[in-house]
Every structure is written in structure tokens, then in C-alpha cells.
């Protein structure tokens, strides 16, 4: 049995969570305040994931904030940055518009703001 200590990143509380692991199997999660923390901890010990937030360039030269609409595997972060850095989009863009469909299977890159 292995014990892993984590700090939850789901919200600003930053709970100190302890996860008990038996191989790949999560035996217990303690220290979290809410269900989000439990979910985070279970995922974090097996395959850590993060929502990626960055920008893409609009054709008019301005920057558009974007994010992945679901968390992506942490190990893919720099791969994703490289792919996103090549993207240029044309106005008009509405908040929530898909900028890159299936950046990773089932995960889209979406706009966080209107383009003008």
C-alpha cells in the first residue's frame, strides 16, 4: 500500500489530500472538502490532467484567449502548445466557438472571448 500526498487544484481552498493506493487501485481519499477534490485526487494519482488555457492569433494580429473544453493529459501540455501556436483564425469569433475540433480525441479548443 502506498500513500500519496496531494494539494487539490480544483479551487482556491487548496485542500491537502492523502490518497491510499494499492498498485493502480485507489483504496481511500482523505482530506478533501468536496466531491471535486475526490475526483481530482483519483485522477491525479493515475493520470494527471489539466485544462490548457492559452491564446491563438487572429488574422488581424490581435490575440484570442482559448482553452481546452476538457482537461488534457498533463504530459500532452507542450505538444498541445506546439500545435496551438500554429493556429490562426479569422474574425468574427464568438465566445464558446470551436477553434480546433478534436485537438485530442473528443476534446476541442474553444474561444474564451468574442473576437472584437
Amino acid at each position: 500500500m502506498k500513500k500519496i500526498s496531494l494539494t487539490c487544484v480544483e479551487c482556491p481552498l487548496g485542500c491537502d489530500i492523502t490518497v491510499e493506493l494499492d498498485g493502480e487501485r485507489v483504496v481511500s481519499v482523505a482530506g478533501n472538502t468536496c466531491p471535486r477534490g475526490e475526483k481530482y485526487a483519483k485522477a491525479e494519482v493515475v493520470c494527471p490532467k489539466r485544462v490548457l488555457t492559452t491564446t491563438v492569433r487572429l488574422e488581424n494580429g490581435k490575440m484570442l484567449p482559448v482553452k481546452t473544453n476538457q482537461p488534457i493529459e498533463k504530459s500532452l501540455t507542450f505538444n498541445a502548445m506546439q500545435r496551438v501556436s500554429k493556429v490562426t483564425v479569422a474574425s468574427p469569433i464568438k465566445i464558446g466557438d470551436v477553434i480546433v475540433k478534436d485537438l485530442y480525441e473528443g476534446i476541442d479548443l474553444v474561444a474564451c472571448a468574442n473576437s472584437d
Binding site: 480544483e10 479551487c11 482556491p12 485544462v51 488555457t53 492559452t54 491564446t55 484567449p65 482553452k67 474564451c112
Partner: peptide
Amino acid sequence: CIHNGFGLTRFKES
């Protein structure tokens, strides 16, 4: 502030 984590208290989403 293009990072996420805003609105969790008020809108219950990040």
C-alpha cells in the same frame, strides 16, 4: 487573466 479558476464560488464552474 486568460487562466482558469474564476467563478467557482459564484457560478460553480471554473
